[in-house]
């Protein structure tokens, strides 16, 4: 473990991964030499185009996929160590895109209990965790409802509750808002950012939405199996040309300033909030 640091909850070192080929066809390489460290307690957004390897990377964080080369460590544990798989999965919970396909039970609270039940937690403790988790995502009043009657945002919050009831150190969300309407998206992103702030849970958010990524502490941009940009949202989104070349875009506030700069203005490219951007434009116009 080179450069292992206790504060890194996930550490990806020289990861190589090739999807196994079907029959005689050669496999599809996704990563050749991927390196990434995620600090405990941080809120990291991972951006990239469809097929850039975001989901494949996420599946390495809890031993669903195992590296074909290099190592992935979770809390210092090698994810390829079969004896420790349950510890890894216990520490890193996953929420997927389609809420319908990750809810197991047909009563909300029973579903949230599924994870802790698998961990062999005692009954009264499961009850406590389920209630706490449901309250944290604001779904406690719905604990006896049938999940298929909930809205997309509500289902996704139930899925998140199901993960936090396992009391993981880290939650990885793989495009959790792709199927939701604006309200559902707000609900989900507010929930995860609150869990990060108040409970100190590490959040890795994979997304297509720049405005969601802008709410993270750190943005990692993946392109063709490599880290193309890595930094605070302001640092990453100000690299507008780079993002465009990958097929991504910055939030509209930055895109607007960038476009104005091309036409002779001299604005800084780090305004992510509408208020900030308005102030910068105001100053530019009044100058």
């Amino acid at each position: 473990m080179e450069g292992f640091n206790l504060s890194d909850i996930i550490s990806v070192e020289h990861l190589a991964y090739t999807y196994p080929g079907v029959e005689d066809t050669p496999g599809v390489p996704v990563f050749e030499d991927m390196n990434l460290k995620i600090q405990e307690g941080s809120f990291v957004a991972v951006l990239g185009t469809n097929g850039c390897g975001k989901s494949t990377l996420a599946k390495h964080f809890n031993s669903i996929l195992l590296p074909t080369g290099g190592k992935v460590y979770v809390c210092g544990i090698d994810t390829a160590n079969e004896d420790r798989i349950m510890t890894v999965r216990h520490n890193v919970g996953m929420v997927f895109q389609n809420p319908d396909n990750q809810i197991v039970a047909n009563v909300v609270e029973e579903d949230v209990a599924f994870g802790p039940e698998n961990l062999g937690v005692s009954s009264p403790e499961i009850r406590r965790r389920v209630d706490t988790a449901l309250k944290q995502v604001g779904m406690y009043e719905y604990r006896e409802h049938a999940p298929h009657l909930l809205s997309g945002g509500q289902k996704q919050r139930v899925a998140i509750a199901g993960i936090i009831a396992m009391e993981p150190k880290c939650i990885v969300l793989d495009e959790p808002t792709a199927m939701l309407d604006p309200r559902g998206r707000r609900e989900v992103i507010d929930t995860v950012s609150r869990l990060n702030r108040e409970k100190g849970i590490t959040v890795v958010l994979i997304t297509h939405h720049m405005d969601e990524a802008a709410r993270a502490d750190r943005v990692v941009v993946l392109d063709k199996g490599k880290v193309a940009a890595d930094g605070t949202p302001r640092e990453v989104f100000s690299q507008v040309e780079l993002l465009h070349s990958i097929g991504l875009a910055s939030p509209e506030t930055v895109e607007l300033c960038w476009e104005l700069n091309r036409q002779g203005f001299d604005l800084s490219l780090d305004a992510l909030e509408p208020e900030e951007c308005a102030q910068a434009l105001y100053n530019a116009v009044k100058a």
Partner: peptide, 14 residues
């Protein structure tokens, strides 16, 4: 699997 399911062995109930 991500939620640590590995069959009935060692499972508890709420």
């Amino acid at each position: 699997e991500c939620r640590c399911y590995q069959g009935g062995e060692g499972r508890t109930k709420m």
